[in-house]
Simulated assay, not measured.
Amino acid sequence: MGQHIISRMKILSLLSLFFITSGATADNVDQSSIKAAVDQAIQPLIKQYTIPGMAIAVTVDGKSYFYNYGVASKETQQRITNKTLFEIGSFSKTLTATLVSYAQVNGNLSLSDSASKYFPSLRGSSFDDISLLDLGTHTAGGLPLQVPDNITDTDQLMNYFKQWKPVHAAGTYRKYSNLSIGMLGMIAAKSMNMSFEDALQKTLFPQLGMRHSYITVPRDQMQDYAQGYTAKDVPVRVTPAVLASEAYGVKSDTTDLIRFINANMQMVQLDGKLQRAITDTHTGYFKTGEFTQDLIWEQYTYPVGLKRLLAGNAATFVYDGSQATRLNPPLQPQKEVLINKTGSTNGFSAYAAFVPAKKIGIVILANKAYPVEQRVTAAYQILEQLSIPAGSKK
């Protein structure tokens, strides 16, 4: 972590302000000290990668703290706020997973169902032997990362699925895929007799209390939508595409997303069925080389070292895939874990992580593409400082 790590004395000084006994509470957190810790991790990233704007939300024992840097647009110089909308990329998949789990709790579907059950045109195809759980854990057998460029509508997608042949037996190999979760999102919405966009925007988001999150940003909210920038500083925003909504299409702000993280730690008052659905997404189904695969979420036994966290979030793990060992029975939701998810579009970068046992979590959003390794490292530095009891030594 090099020069970006605060000295041991400074860490212990900050921690003495954060904690009493063995856990953080909202009442004894010194907000200026949290800001100093966040600044230490985030400001070097902004400088190194010339990031126009970043928004960070930290939660400690159910109380949220917000830190905003820079501008939403280099052209307008509009400042980043808690309400600035960012594309969250594949972090969207965790919301799709929550919708799927909610549909299951309500009896609309079962994760044990075959994928072809919901699409008559796919009966007799490979999807007879692929379950919804396989789709939600990237273990369908080797679906590609991206939808092929020549597929521009649902009919073409269904034809592709009908002809597709798995490389691996379902439930034996994890290969990260937008098609996998995209198909699952389609099935969830279909089981609820709604479009996917309506299922998220009219059902899930309102019940979660996420009041400023969208698939399609309304015209009267466009002033809050940040301009994204590629790694080479070219202005860009995500464009509509097949399965984009289901796999990487959410635009949201730190206020809504840290609420979602708090809901994942059972620190938000929600309808009982919805809370059960959220908690169920933390069930561990497969063991991979680096982490336990939940329903989209990725889970590490806590405490976890930075080296392992980086390995689990490495590009090679995404593009190459890995063997997956089914957990039988599945691992019930755990407290002593770190659960995380990255998200990227061509012009935006996101990362979220939380530790239920410590009641701490973080969301990091930026309106520029920059490496996953750097955002994971920054989040790790901040969470480590929030998690160590006063007086402990590293």
Rank of each mutant, 00 (worst) to 15 (best):
200 L>I: 13
164 W>K: 01
149 D>P: 01
175 K>D: 13
188 A>I: 06
59 T>H: 04
308 R>V: 11
110 S>P: 08
191 S>R: 02
332 Q>G: 01
250 V>E: 01
269 Q>I: 15
37 A>I: 06
151 I>R: 10
240 P>F: 08
206 P>S: 06
209 G>C: 06
84 T>N: 12
180 S>D: 12
22 S>L: 10
146 Q>P: 09
97 A>D: 01
363 V>P: 04
72 A>F: 04
47 K>Q: 08
249 G>W: 08
220 D>F: 00
167 V>Q: 02
38 V>N: 05
152 T>S: 14
92 S>P: 09
326 R>I: 15
115 A>V: 15
42 I>A: 02
394 K>I: 12
228 G>N: 13
187 I>Q: 00
266 Q>F: 00
166 P>G: 07
228 G>K: 05
158 M>A: 00
257 L>C: 08
18 F>W: 08
183 M>I: 10
240 P>Y: 06
188 A>Y: 01
380 Y>P: 08
342 T>R: 01
75 E>M: 00
322 S>E: 07
345 T>Y: 10
277 A>Y: 11
252 S>Y: 01
8 R>A: 03
153 D>S: 03
269 Q>V: 15
381 Q>L: 14
125 S>W: 13
78 Q>E: 14
88 I>C: 04
302 Y>Q: 11
378 A>L: 02
203 T>C: 04
41 A>M: 07
199 A>Q: 12
153 D>A: 02
95 L>M: 12
47 K>G: 00
255 T>P: 12
387 S>K: 04
269 Q>C: 04
135 L>P: 12
335 K>Q: 11
46 I>A: 07
163 Q>G: 15
201 Q>P: 13
294 D>G: 03
368 K>L: 06
344 S>Y: 09
387 S>F: 02
367 N>M: 02
93 K>W: 03
235 P>T: 06
228 G>V: 09
204 L>S: 05
171 G>L: 10
222 M>D: 12
122 L>N: 10
369 A>N: 06
162 K>M: 03
362 I>S: 00
219 R>G: 09
33 S>H: 15
173 Y>T: 02
159 N>G: 12
194 M>S: 11
357 A>T: 07
83 K>C: 12
59 T>G: 00
297 W>D: 05
249 G>I: 04
126 S>R: 00
167 V>W: 02
45 L>W: 03
317 F>W: 09
373 E>Q: 05
202 K>G: 03
211 R>D: 15
163 Q>C: 01
190 K>G: 05
341 K>H: 15
117 K>G: 09
106 N>M: 13
